[in-house]
Write a protein that binds this DNA or RNA. Structure first.
Lengths: 112, 112
DNA sequence: CATTTATATAAGCGTTCTGTTATATAACGA
DNA sequence: TCGTTATATAACAGAACGCTTATATAAATG
């Protein structure tokens, strides 16, 4: 899945995450999205292109506007991949005794 | 949470994801991790440093070795953030009718 | 001690990001 | 048709990235 490259690296940028957070509140046009940022419109357009390429948003054409909204594609793929790590961590947790033994920490309460 | 920058950008690299996938199968030393890759040891060391900085792995000291294993910190944070998008997507789905409605025909004149 | 083993750090280089300004395109409205 | 509005593209500079080779450090071993 080479798409994960695009998805994760799209999410790595705080501006792009902020754009997504805004879109979480509903559809918006490019200028609407650009407004809160101290950044030029071309810069925002590029960020949106990255998000679109990663499958995180989709756009429709409405006259001269291109309203964007969130897309499920990338999120699903990411969730699936992260599942691998989550499962592994859960297993590690089952083996917590081993971990604690090797860590030899200052006294602290362990849970089960 | 500016840690998300580090976490997502750490995950954006396929080599680093492969390292994590390997660690999902259990603890491993730097050389063990480096072995499958057509890449020098310093390169892997750097990748591991990035993963550690992002809170995706932790390492302990065992003689001259530094076995790595997965850490839950970053995953948790990422999951939390993605929750925002997931929720929004779920809502968008509820409002699917609206979306379809706005997409509806807005007859235009043929031309050219 | 001297050597080997496991890993880290440094310096150098080409490539990829991210922002800018300037300009293009396409639809709208008068 | 003309000007305006919404967005995209191009060209460019500087920062960040990822790899390499060479070297440093610190524990293990003989």
């Amino acid at each position: 899945m080479r798409n994960l490259d695009a998805a994760f690296s799209a999410l790595a940028d705080p501006t792009r995450r902020a754009l997504l957070a805004r879109l979480a509140r509903g559809e918006a046009t490019v200028l609407e999205l650009a407004e809160p940022f101290d950044m030029t419109q071309p810069a925002i357009s590029r960020h949106l292109k990255v998000l679109e390429g990663a499958g995180l948003i989709v756009r429709r054409v409405e006259g001269t506007k291109r309203p964007c909204r969130l897309a499920p594609a990338a999120i699903t793929e990411i969730d699936q991949w992260l599942g691998l790590l989550r499962d592994a961590l859960a297993k590690n947790y089952d083996r917590l005794d081993d971990v604690l033994a090797t860590m030899k920490p200052k006294p602290r309460k362990a849970r089960r």
